[in-house]
Design a binder for these strands. Structure first.
Lengths: 192, 192
DNA sequence: TGAAAACAGCGTCAAATGTCCTCTTTTCCC
DNA sequence: GGGAAAAGAGGACATTTGACGCTGTTTTCA
């Protein structure tokens, strides 16, 4: 499973063999089953995850128990709960597996060590955060301005691989629509 | 006007007098009038702004010309368009002043110089980004899960100073509601 | 200071959306 | 293999929301 990650590293950073070994030395590989929970609300998040295979989701619940997905994370993405990780505060989000998945874990302190020893890794991570900030803004803009149909179309175009693999009610949850509205949008599109 | 900023710096970082002078040496102060545009869609963003006084807003338009506000920035906040700034790409967002405002500008390259010379400033900025990521997530969660009334209440509680100073139609734009819905929510609350 | 623009409330109507329900098919898991 | 759970479509109905038009007030600015 580590092979996928090493490919990812080589594709995105120029690292020496020593550096690659160092990163590997802190990594913990783990296979999880569908629905397995990786982080519960109230827990303190102590890790960073890289998704080699599968899909994770990050969501939050309302008082009435409904789940609202803020993020899907398929292969080659990093997942953590930054707020909880950095501040050592209880997480307000859940993280679980949508499919059987293959993951690699690092603890925060190990990753901080890596940052010190491998500046390029730090730099790369900053670029990822920057991209995430941009995507987050786009998502907010879409959420406050787009029609349900536009939201659905954007999602399908932007995350085709996720779209094909997660149940519709999760897509509805991600988009902030009822399942009913989503199915109406889809139905209307069949006619066109 | 620079005094407010220096207070802010002293409150948030321990910096030497030399460091404070260095930061000052790159700063450009500017007073702007209400509605003055600081960044247009299509322009490349070349600056970071600190708001000493007033309120800025960051928004984007749809094809039909409607404006959708993704951020308000009152005193003591930093404003830029990170995507455009980092990648030297045309901005998809506008930034303008909601009130007459007092601002301080730095160019990207000057700020990068400051980061190198003052590690503590870099570290502090990372904390701010981290907080912004958290706030962004909260905003997404709210946008996809909350009722109009909840959105309005959250906004009033979270940003009382902004609430008191911007017109209602901008609040509606920020929350993703029509002005009509917003006024209905407000009307309903008067009865309680 | 006077005209124009911005702001915000209100009413009506039509459309969009959600809730609740049933029913069917698929998937999961022991 | 079989029973249970999950997924999703669809109908009926109530509610919410938005679009539009109109009005009155305040603010802005030339």
């Amino acid at each position: 499973m580590y092979a996928e990650f090493e490919t990812y590293l080589r594709d995105n950073m120029q690292l020496s063999d020593d550096e690659l070994r160092l990163i590997h030395s802190f990594a913990v590989e783990k296979k999880v089953r569908r629905k397995q929970v990786l982080l519960q609300e109230g827990e303190i998040c102590r890790f960073k995850i890289f998704v080699c295979k599968g899909i994770l989701r990050t969501y939050r619940t309302r008082e009435d128990g409904t789940e609202h997905i803020v993020q899907f994370s398929p292969e080659n993405l990093w997942v953590t709960e930054p707020e909880s990780l950095h501040n050592h505060t209880p997480s307000r989000y859940y993280i679980d597996a949508v499919e059987d998945s293959e993951l690699i874990f690092w603890t925060k302190s190990d990753f901080d060590t890596l940052f010190v020893q491998i500046p390029r890794l730090k730099y790369f991570t900053e670029r990822l955060i920057s991209r995430n900030v941009t995507l987050g803004r786009d998502r907010i803009f879409s959420a406050i301005s787009a029609t349900p149909e536009e939201k659905y179309d954007e999602f399908v175009q932007t995350y085709p691989s996720v779209f094909a693999r997660v149940p519709l009610h999760m897509i509805a949850s991600y988009l902030g629509l009822s399942l009913k509205t989503l199915s109406r949008v889809r139905h209307a599109q069949l006619k066109r």
